[in-house]
Amino acid sequence: MKHSVPDGLRDLLAQAAGVGHAPWRTLLKPGDWVLLLAAGVLVATSYPLLWRGGKADRAIVKRDGQVVTELALNVARRYEVTGAIGTTLIEIQPGRARVLSDPGPRQYCVQQGWLTRANAVAICAPNHVTLQLSGRSGQNGAYDTLNY
């Protein structure tokens, strides 16, 4: 029975079982630990650094495609725009913005709720008013094109 296993295979199996091997932790030298730790920290910091591009810092209000105002998203405030059929009320809070009320019949832009990401947009079409957020990387940093 013993001879039914080829020698090479037996060696391989013995090796897989760790015969005659040093334990894993002795294979790491002090510098290896330092380097692994530093690399881990570097990789971990690369996540927030590269993936916060979607954060919005400005709200742009437009009527008939023309910019009415640009509001910074760092202080809470409200802004009124008079559009085609009435007044749209926009509410700003730190880091987010929403359409609080709108005269449109279906209230889509109001029901959209808070906008937080750059380039998010709420369109109150009946009143010809749009509210769009903009991030630090310019007008349309997160998208190549936007079509409505």
Binding site: L27, L28, K29, P30, G31, D32, L35, L36, A39
Partner: peptide
Amino acid sequence: RFFGPVSASVL
């Protein structure tokens, strides 16, 4: 003395 194959591999 301080760096083994693991460092070389990660780099």
